[in-house]
Design a protein around this nucleic acid. Sequence first.
DNA 1: GTAGGGTTAG
Length: 716
Amino acid sequence: MAAKFSTALDIHCNNIPYTLDSKLPLPHGGSSSRLSIKRFTVFCNNSKSQKPNLNLDLDLDSPRKATPSLSEQLKPLSNTILDDPPSQARILSKPKSTWVNPTRPKPSVLSLQRQKKSAYSYNPKVRDLKNFARRLNECHFSNEAFVAVLDDIPHEPARDNALLVLNSIRPWQKSVLFFNWIKTKNLFPLETIFYNVVMKSLRFGRQFQQIEELAFEMIDGGVELDNITYSTIITCAKRCNLFDKAVEWFERMYKTGLMPDEVTYSAVLDVYAQLGKVEEVMSLYERGRASGWTPDPVAFAVLAKVFGAAGDYDGIRFVLQEMKSLEVKPNVVVYNTLLEAMGKAGKPGLARSLFEEMMESGLSPDAKTLTALIKIYGKARWARDALELWERMKTNGWPMDFILYNTLLSMCADLGLEEEAETLFDDMRKSEHCRLDSWSYTAMLDIYGSVGNAEKAMALFEEMSEVGIELSVMGCTCLVQCFGRAKRIDDLVKVFESSVQRGVKPDDRLCGCLLSVVANCKGDDADKVLACLQQANPKLVTFIKLLEDESASYDIVKEEFRSILTNTSDDARRPFCNCLIDICRNRNRAERAHELLYLGTVYGLYPGLHTKTPEEWRLNVRALSVGAAQTAFEEWMRTLVKIVQSEETLPEVLSANTGAGTHKFSQGLANAFASHVEKLAAPFKQSEEKAGFFIASREDVVSWVQSQAAAATATA
DNA sequence: GTAGGGTTAG
């Protein structure tokens, strides 16, 4: 038997540098070879090792990539405008070296001269005309009412007068009415500026189709489209999510021989930024640079945004370096965007120093700056920095808005600052400057949910319905978590049912929360929660039944699990797997728990579960639920037993890291882990110096294995 | 919002 399994493992462990992986123990007497492969893979870090061909990403990413690449789109441009074929986009490198022959003119993709606006001349009738415009704005929306006011125009609608009024009119419906009225009067030819002003008004109303019709009207009537026209069209398309249209109009302007200036150019840069097309943004950027363009802060804000969205720290550094070398001073917006980007790239420390740099440069933070930082500190669980910043905000009287207030509440939820949140919530309740809204209530529900204060959560839920604030899907999730922990299952069902009736669409997080309640309760209670889950995600319920079914084969479980994960959003996959493992363990399906842990590992849900240096091997269970951590630990111990038995080399130190639970409300994975270690009588001791670490020396493990073997022999 | 581009919350 043993020989058969080591053969199976040997086949799969070619090229594996670690002996551990090839010497994993046989599970449960080794009843099948696929289980032995399973054990091998859970603790194998080598990406080249054989893995079942179940790559989820292949199934998940295919629907994207509809738009052609920028290089395809700019091909006509390169034929007509560029002297040389464009160089390959070299992300994060300077474009200066592109043009080796200085005698050749640099090909240009943008005009370095920004379009000049016509000088504003003072109109002595400004007061009368503004009053007139106000009457138009305030009059009834009907055509008749509007025309009645029009007849009352205080001065003749000559060019300057008409332009002044047109500029003051809103919303877009009335701008169009007025525009058409001066058109019928036919007192003067309608120049570009008139179209531009109406288009801007239409853009506020996101009326892309009407803007496009006006543009065609200009073309037909021989009215020139200038950079302002194009940038208005492009940004309107962007705001309407019509990105193809944005690019189409950008290309059209080249075709008509008009060169974009930097405003139009950075508007297009932002089109690609919003599509998350980093390479296209960089390509445009470098072509611009090669044309001799020194980008301004707006363009850098766009670059910062695109790298932030990608969580690309190297990109963010590039933006900073590039601004430095071009001596472009970042303004508040650029700093805000960079701070956001640092947060998304997971660099709270760098965000903090960037903020200090911003202060030193003499800029003052606005509400968005502070919102970004507070959010970063909250997510990073940097309580000291968050509270310090909050104090600074108060002492300096820095600007606040309702989003910043709500972000402070969310930060309190992240850090477990219950009292601080309650004080702030009450301040907001009394304040005239801000109002409690759905976000504020949700943040409080988050806190009460985490702390398990069902009474306060219920009171808040009732208050919400009294003041007419709808429960969001996140609020519902918090309440489900809260009532689940408090074992108030009937309240949980009530909240869930009423939310669904009121139109809340359960998402994967809510399902994950229901799932964790199922994992932690029994009998009728479990059935009640399963009935909720049945409405939210019936496939998940079917899968739970499959897990309990002893006759279901591993292959079926594998396939169904794959299908579940494929249909689950990325951030909910690991929680799903954790909960499902817990469900298995709590229902005496320990073997299934091991299978799920294996599959979870294969699908990349637990990266870095096991890390090795020559001195130390470590099991990292911080991101695991209690049951999953126990399962992983059991698996690991079996591995270690096998290694000792076959007299393979072990490192000096073996450790397991549960994390210290920096969150005040954290459920104490360390405690649960400690009692499991005790139950197994494993030789791991909780470290006194390093919180959240369990440590065993090589000697501890070896002598433990030997005593276990002796005991086993004695019993036999 | 005074003819055009960039930044805030689970």
